[in-house]
Amino acid sequence: MARVQSSDVIVVGSGVIGLTAAVVLAESGRYVRVWAREPAEATTSAVAGALWWPYHIEPEALAGEWALRSLSVYKELAARPEETGVRMVEGVLGESRLDAQGPWVAGVPGLRAATAEEYAGTGLWARLPLIDMPVHLRWLRERFLRAGGTIEARTVADLAEAEAPVVVNCTGLGARELVPDPAVRPVRGQLVIVANPGIRTWLVSTDPVAGTTTYLFPQPDRLVLGGTADEDDWSLTPDPAVAARIVERCAALRPEVAGARVLDHRVGLRPARDTVRLERELRPDGRVLVHNYGHGGAGVTVAWGCALEAAGLAEGPA
């Protein structure tokens, strides 16, 4: 049976937020097209760390709900890590306490204070989803295509170009010009990719005096070292001096990193906003526009929760 045109949805954006929303919509029976300016592997999402944790995202209460819904999905996907890119990995969040987290923390099984052997300072031990983003993005795309969706390479200059009953705006930093929404701004993150010297657990450590966050994320074929959080910095060019400092900070936490062979340098621009914009807008012509952007560095963490909510907002008469 042919799908009716009235069920058409166009999702603008092919990062983790856009592809996850597209999967949920397509699997609900909608005919969904993704308009992608660039392949998923070239998006900011592909550069992400990507550890599940509601990191610097507002509104906190809603973000916690979105994150827990996503956690439930990632736990299931972790049963097939080679296919989905999702693994459950142990690690420590340094300079963190249970009583400093939001109510959502009660939904994270096994979360506890780190022992002195696990971390030289105050921290939280957790077993969390750690996602190999290039693998995960490919898997999302394939799942979407299997659900009957299509992907079109297209650069959008105006959201009005998307002539469909429902349009879902998952353009991330692009929303700054497309909406336009000047509240969206870049937070630049630089990473160093090295050959893994045998590290199996992840670690995040924050220096409140220096204002830096240092992290080590072991992926199957590499070790991701980070990072930076430079607000309003649009540069996509890796800075050698910054890279050297990242390696130095990581080696101070895990000495075996010193001298590890460097495989790559990466830079991504997180689409930050004071609060995530996830809402329905009814256009004068009766069409529905659902905004789903502004997730900063927590897009992976809340992707499934936001996708489910966006799909709900897309329902109803256009």
Rank of each mutant, 00 (worst) to 15 (best):
G174C: 05
R30P: 06
Q5P: 12
R273T: 04
E82Y: 00
S70G: 11
D233S: 06
G85V: 01
V108H: 02
E83S: 05
A229H: 07
P271D: 10
L308G: 02
A162E: 04
V168R: 11
T84Y: 02
E60R: 15
H265Y: 13
D158W: 01
A21E: 08
L128I: 07
A210P: 12
V288A: 14
W234M: 09
H265F: 09
W304V: 08
A183N: 05
R261D: 03
W52N: 01
V23S: 11
E231A: 14
E248G: 03
G149D: 13
T115W: 07
H56I: 01
G226P: 10
L25G: 09
E76Y: 02
V262H: 11
P284W: 02
E256G: 01
L253T: 00
G268R: 05
I17H: 09
R30L: 10
V204Y: 15
E38L: 07
G110F: 03
T115G: 15
A243I: 13
D232M: 08
G148A: 12
L278Y: 04
S14C: 14
G299N: 13
N169A: 08
E256M: 11
D233Q: 08
Y293V: 02
R261K: 07
G198W: 03
G29N: 01
G85M: 01
T212F: 06
V167M: 02
L93C: 10
A241M: 05
L269D: 07
N292H: 14
P134C: 06
V290T: 05
D274V: 01
H295D: 13
Q101P: 10
L308T: 10
S205F: 05
V257Y: 05
R245H: 11
R188S: 05
G15A: 02
V156S: 11
L173M: 10
S96K: 04
G85Q: 06
P103T: 11
E90R: 14
G107S: 12
R143L: 06
L93Q: 08
P134I: 01
A162T: 02
G123S: 03
T150I: 13
V179C: 08
H291F: 08
G316M: 08
G15M: 00
S6L: 10
S235F: 06
R261S: 08
E65D: 15
